[in-house]
Amino acid sequence: MMSKIRDFFNQGGLLLFALGRILAGIPIIIALTVLVFMATQALPGDAAVSYLANTATPERLAAIREQLNLDDPLWVQYFSWASDALRLDFGMTLTGETSVSAILGERIQNTLILMASSGIIAIPLSIVIGTYAAVRRGKIFDNVSSLVTLVLASLPEFVVAIFVVFLLATNIFQIFPAISFVEPGTLAWADPMSLVLPSLTLILAVTPYVSRIMRGSMIEVMESEYIQMARLKGLSERTVILRHALPNAIAPTIQVIALQLAWLAGGVVVVEAVFAYPGIGTVMIDSVKARDLPIVQAITLMIAALYVVLNILADIGTILSTPRLRTKHARKNDTSDVFAAMDGDQ
């Protein structure tokens, strides 16, 4: 893997490709700001009315309109919001006490910690389960894991969360806290126990999908002719699986992994709510309830941007793990000398 990464950056063409993908992500992010902005415009009344609702007085309405520049033309509003947003400045919350960034800063880190701790376990775990099930196709492990993953995949994550709480926090064992209490001002890993149940829930939600895709991909590869060839070379089954099959099976799975990670970002809202985990999910729910528009906009935009980033990473990852694609994007002279060799062949 290291040598692949080294190759990747040695080959200027690939770096260019990566840059190209990242640049292509920029208009998408900009389009997202438009969408998010437009979506909030579609709310009945304006932001001030919907925030204040029954408590609205002309003065308070005016104050908020002032804060959000609601009296400016739409496009001016958009530009001032979007240009600030791109600099990660989302303005003040409508309570007027703190800036959105200040509220979100810590929360985002907590959420990322939660996603990372679940991803780091869920992805290798799914690859191992999927691979092992494929290799043992039709045997007990395969049948059991197929059934379990199918059941888990069909359960909504709040059900999984409740089950996890039931099992490990309250009724059966009381090992982990059912509520993730994190001291304000500290990050989630200050108290790893608080991370266990939310992570576990997310792992249980993600692993079934990824492992099923991995299993399918691995089965396809194991039936290919080059695997048969590797066996006919006398290689041990271990070498056949680890060197010949696995790398070829992971490549097509990367896109699914990225999608699942992005999905984690959405699923995290529900899971955080169940465990009262202080991430952006809980802020999101609170601010939707309070109709605190700047926060809602900021979070929506960030989750959407995460999708874009993960997709870019997935594209690059797919190319890195597929030699055919990798070399296609490599330096030009590399391919031209292939054609020279092909001519010599005739």
């Binding site: 080059y226 060839m229 590797a230 010949h244 070829n248 597929t322």
Partner: peptide, 16 residues
């Protein structure tokens, strides 16, 4: 004993 396959296009490992 060694085997030379019918179609090397599919019998060589694309990833190695």
């Amino acid at each position: 004993i060694a085997y030379v396959p019918q179609d090397p296009g599919t019998a060589l490992n694309p990833g190695l």
